[in-house]
Design a binder for these strands. Structure first.
Lengths: 203, 203
DNA sequence: AATTATACTGAATATATATACAGTATATTA
DNA sequence: TAATATACTGTATATATATTCAGTATAATT
């Protein structure tokens, strides 16, 4: 943003105050009255300067057609979006990060660690569609019925979690076209990366 | 707050939209263009009714001198969550707002206006479940296949939009347990509040 | 020394805008 | 049955408003 003069700043403040007070922007005459100018052209030239410097927009030929340009906020580091990496677990290594999303940490209640972009339709009936982002919380506190991000060997998948016995775990899809994954922990190693605590869909 | 008619509500929403879009309130002519009226007096009488009922203030003799009595604060990054109101459209009036959600305005690409909490499972196969929040963008730019928030009489619903002919519109659920809603525009009035541009699920 | 930006006054004007007036029509209320 | 509210079209007009033009003056650049 370019430099601004003291007088131009007064005009800018005047516009802001006027909108706050009345709900609509001032006319040239209004600005003159507020700031003690005696000619509407005084306001006009200041407005043109403010427009040129990018502080306001002026809609030509339109009464009160002044709008404030809000400076774009510098986004903070948000939460990483991670793709389902074919081999290996979804780590937070930078090469796996698609981009980051700016949102409050408490967005999904108790907090979460990253977003995972969903591939496939195996959880369709749970309302989880392809390309959705599920908010994943890294935890081992898993209960039956939770939607978990699980890694079996080098495969990462999202499913309902059901512990059938101390040795047997079922990973259950929400789509009748897919079959349950039945795991005997004595034969196959499984690692729970975390559980889904929320979802975001960008159309 | 007193009762409000459907047409008056449209005018009220139109004013809110216009301010959000441009930064300043509309003229009578602007309202006519937005809502298809052919006489500025159509807007005028609605404005007077809204003023009488306390929804707006009108500054006499002042261009664009309309101000909303209960304006929705456009916070830096707070968006209102609105419940499906039985009677009338989901307005941004404060009594309809559940709470607000902090998230960047550009969260869902081109921007949106509010969140609507979904009731029922009529859009289940589109991955929209009960209690999900859909991000709604207020627009009349609807294409076939879009997921829209539509109001028929006093009923608000979320469905796929399909225009079959200039006079016939189908609202199609994404759930085989629900039937298509077929609307003849010559018999039944329909108002498109906006379209879904994203979704958030809080577990 | 010439140009450009800032900072005003003052007058003039095309048009953008609010608003009144005259109608038509339907539905609701007293 | 009359009165009132809603919901419009259509025309007209006083005035509110943006915007240009003609000046004056100071300070900063080129």
């Amino acid at each position: 943003m370019k430099e601004i003069t003291i007088q131009q700043n007064k005009v800018l403040d005047c516009i802001q105050e006027y909108i706050n007070k009345t709900g609509f922007p001032p006319t040239r005459a209004n600005i003159c009255k507020e700031l003690g100018f005696k000619s509407p052209n005084s306001a006009e030239t200041h407005l043109r300067a403010l427009e040129k410097k990018g502080f306001i927009n002026i809609e030509s030929g339109t009464s009160r057609g002044i709008s404030l340009v809000n400076p774009v906020e510098i986004e903070e580091d948000g939460f990483p979006i991670i793709g389902l990496v074919a081999a290996g677990s979804p780590t937070l290594a930078s090469e796996n990060i698609e981009k980051t999303v700016n949102c409050p940490p408490t967005f999904f209640g108790s907090g979460f660690d990253y977003f995972l972009r969903v591939r496939g339709l195996s959880m369709k009936d749970a309302g989880i569609m392809e390309d959705d982002l599920i908010a994943v919380k890294k935890t081992q506190d898993i209960r039956n019925g939770d939607i978990v991000v699980a890694r079996i060997e080098d495969e990462v998948t999202v499913k309902y979690f059901e512990r059938k016995s101390p040795e047997v775990v079922h990973l259950i899809p929400a789509n009748e076209d897919f079959k349950n994954i039945e795991i005997d922990l004595r034969e196959t190693e499984i690692h729970i990366e975390g559980k889904s605590v929320g979802l975001i869909r960008e159309n």
